[in-house]
Computed example of a mutant assay.
Amino acid sequence: MKSYKLLTLTFLLLAALSVTGCSGSDDAAAVKDKAAVRSETVPETRLRPAAERVDAPPIQATTMDGAPVTLDAKRDGKIHIINFWATWCPPCRAEMPELDILAGELKNRDDVAFYAVNLGDNPDTVHRFLVETGLVDLTILLNQDNSAARQYAVQSIPTTILIDADGKLAYRQIGMTTAAELKSALDALKEEDKR
């Protein structure tokens, strides 16, 4: 009976996390930074109309090899998919295999860039996770100081953001996402370009 209760409680906890995501603590600097961009954040799970979009801030991060990189979506004319995640977050871990497959499908397209921005984990932890899970197609960036989360007002992970080809915030999914949801948002952005 105890094991049944424990199993039920574990299932309910994982279900709640998959819907809500994992959230970190709010320190004073994060709260201040979030307040500056909160009014500019994209509504959950819908494509923001083009006239209402705001510029996406650049992200300072490092590659898995430790090289510094600035991700600035305004410069290259591509649609950017940015998934914010951490290795300790169960919903993040659960969605990563599907996102890796999608990244592989998009890898040869010159109009889309897909980044998985890890928040706070050290490179060794991320490397172990990638080896354990066999993820090979996602471009992983490390943001150990969580500055990208503050810039994008990420309060819960996973959070996935799409930036249109003009470098504007177009879509936000808080919590787990699927390849089908992202493909639908990409198709909607491509349809806009045809108009």
Rank of each mutant, 00 (worst) to 15 (best):
S25G: 02
S39M: 03
A16S: 10
I140S: 12
L47D: 00
P43N: 07
D111W: 07
P68T: 01
L141S: 00
A50Y: 09
P58F: 06
F114Q: 08
L138Y: 05
V112L: 10
D72Y: 01
G24R: 06
K107S: 12
D110C: 01
A51M: 02
F11I: 11
T20F: 07
P97L: 11
D33H: 09
K5L: 14
V117H: 00
D100I: 13
K32N: 08
L13Q: 02
E95G: 05
E40W: 02
P123V: 13
R48A: 03
W88Q: 09
M64F: 06
A15C: 14
P49K: 05
A116M: 13
P57V: 01
N108T: 11
P123R: 05
V19M: 03
A29V: 06
A103N: 08
T45P: 00
V54G: 10
A116C: 13
V19W: 04
R38G: 07
A30T: 03
L6K: 11
G120N: 06
A113I: 00
R46D: 01
C22G: 06
R109K: 13
I79H: 01
P49Q: 05
K74F: 02
L119V: 10
G134W: 07
V131Q: 15
L130Y: 08
E44K: 04
F84V: 01
E132Y: 05
D76C: 04
T45F: 05
D26Q: 04
F84Y: 09
I82A: 11
K32M: 08
S25A: 04
S23P: 03
A36E: 13
F114P: 13
P43Q: 12
F84P: 10
P91A: 09
F11V: 09
E132Q: 15
L47P: 01
N118F: 09
V42H: 02
L71C: 12
A50N: 05
R38F: 06
A28D: 12
I81V: 15
G21V: 01
T41M: 12
L135R: 12
D76R: 04
T125V: 15
L102K: 11
F114S: 10
R93W: 01
D33W: 02
A15P: 07
L13W: 04
V117R: 00
E95Q: 14
Q60D: 15
F129R: 10
T139I: 14
E44T: 07
T125I: 12
A36P: 06
T8I: 10
R53C: 01
K32C: 04
A86C: 02
V136D: 11
E132D: 15
L12Q: 04
K32I: 13
N122E: 14
S18G: 12
I82C: 07
P57S: 06
T63D: 00
E52N: 14
A113H: 10
T87S: 11
H127F: 05
G104Q: 10
L47V: 06
P58C: 04
C92V: 13
T62N: 09
A56N: 08
H127E: 14
Y4E: 06
P90R: 07
D27E: 08
A94I: 06
A30Y: 10
A15W: 06
A94N: 09
P68M: 02
P57K: 12
D110F: 01
E52I: 09
F11Q: 02
L47S: 05
T45N: 12
T20V: 05
A86N: 14
Y115W: 14
N122L: 08
